[in-house]
Each structure stands twice: as structure tokens, then as C-alpha cells.
């Protein structure tokens, strides 16, 4: 009983907060609802027994990605009401596209049929002792190719971010810790013997 209860709780909150992401007037509230949705999705993963994925979802999406999201949205102080003004005129075309997609989905599900051999293709559920271990074993053996390319993609993303935003400004005063630490007494002051009555 407890499991279904938790399932309905998590899914309900996920769906509701997902709805609020779209309907909230304030974009910051939207992002906060998005975070709530992520968090509840993680809860659903726990119920599925995929605790590793759940935790990674929280660490990566909630703990890092959404923070940056929130950062940006909070910093943007432009009138969001202004931006929304013209949105209404796109409702018809949005409805058409949404309708087509919905129709296709209904089409797909009504035609749900498995070829006999497909059951052989479907991956068997993980049997190793914990899903962290089995994920690791798969990721570094069968899927190492995709894993490595994902690394390259992230590298390119990093290069891209630096190329597009990093600016070498001239005339910036920086702290030079090495110079500070290697400074000797003689570099900074001079000891002068002063005879009385003469001054320096």
C-alpha cells in the first residue's frame, strides 16, 4: 500500500508542478516548480528501484543545472509580461502542431503491435546486486563508445562557452600571489641612517 501511495503522491506532484511551470506568471516560480518536478521524478526513480539514477538526477539537474537556470532567470530583469504579449497570436499554430503530435501518438498507441522477434531484442532487466554496479559495468564496456563521445561533446561545449564569452580585458589589476610572497624587505623599504638634526 505504501508503494502505490508514494507513487501517486510523486506522480501527482510531478504533473501538477509541471503544469505550473507553464502557467506560472513569474519565471522564477516556473523554475522553482521545475525543480520540484525534477525532485519528484527522482522519487519515481527510487520507486522503480533505480536509486543511482534518482540520485544523479538530483545531483546533476537539481543541484547544478537548475541552479544556473535560476541564476540566469533571476538576473534577467526584463518585463516578462512584455515578452508574453505577442504569444497569444501563436496559439492557433501551436494548437495545430500539438494536435498533429497528439493524433500521431494516438495513432501509435492504437497500432501497438510487437513483431515476434522483438521480444528477443528487448534488454533483460538488470540482475546484478545493485544497479550502480550494473550501470557501471554496462557504461564502461558495451557503451564505452557513446560514453567517450559524450565526453568529447562536453569538451566542445566547454571550448564553445570559453570562445564565446571569455574576454581578455586589458588594464585589469590582478593579485600576483607569487610576487607578494617573494617580496623581500629590501624591495619595499630602505633603511637610512639619519644623523640628528639633518633629516633624510
Amino acid at each position: 500500500m505504501l508503494q502505490p501511495l508514494a507513487f501517486y503522491l510523486f506522480s501527482l506532484v510531478t504533473l501538477l508542478s509541471a503544469t505550473f511551470v507553464i502557467t506560472a506568471k513569474n519565471p522564477v516560480h516556473s523554475v522553482l516548480f521545475l525543480i520540484l518536478a525534477f525532485f519528484n521524478a527522482a522519487g519515481l526513480f527510487v520507486l522503480l528501484g533505480a536509486e543511482f539514477v534518482a540520485m544523479i538526477l538530483v545531483i546533476v539537474y537539481v543541484g547544478a543545472v537548475a541552479v544556473l537556470f535560476l541564476f540566469v532567470v533571476m538576473m534577467l530583469d526584463t518585463g516578462f509580461a512584455e515578452l508574453r504579449k505577442g504569444a497569444l497570436q501563436y496559439v492557433p499554430i501551436g494548437l495545430v502542431i500539438g494536435g498533429v503530435l497528439l493524433a500521431e501518438l494516438i495513432f501509435i498507441y492504437s497500432a501497438w503491435e510487437f513483431a515476434p522477434s522483438i521480444t528477443n531484442n528487448i534488454a533483460s532487466p538488470v540482475t546484478a546486486e545493485s544497479n550502480t554496479v550494473s550501470l557501471g559495468l554496462l557504461l564502461y564496456t558495451d557503451y564505452v563508445y557513446a560514453f567517450q563521445i559524450a565526453g568529447l561533446i562536453l569538451l566542445v561545449a566547454m571550448i564553445g562557452a570559453i570562445v564565446l564569452t571569455h574576454r581578455q580585458r586589458s588594464g585589469v589589476r590582478r593579485q600576483k600571489i607569487k610576487e607578494q610572497n617573494t617580496r623581500k624587505r629590501d624591495d619595499a623599504m630602505e633603511v637610512v641612517k639619519v644623523t640628528t638634526g639633518k633629516g633624510v
Binding site: I35, E51, F52, M55, I56, V58, I59, V62, G63, A64, V67, L70, S130, T132
Partner: peptide, 17 residues
Amino acid sequence: INVGILYLFAISSMGVY
């Protein structure tokens, strides 16, 4: 739990909110 350390890390990374 199996992923205790990840849980700790996840919760502490949420503290920023």
C-alpha cells in the same frame, strides 16, 4: 541505503536553494 553517499551529496547540493 545502497547509494548513501550520493544521497548525502544530493541533499547537500540542494541546500543552495
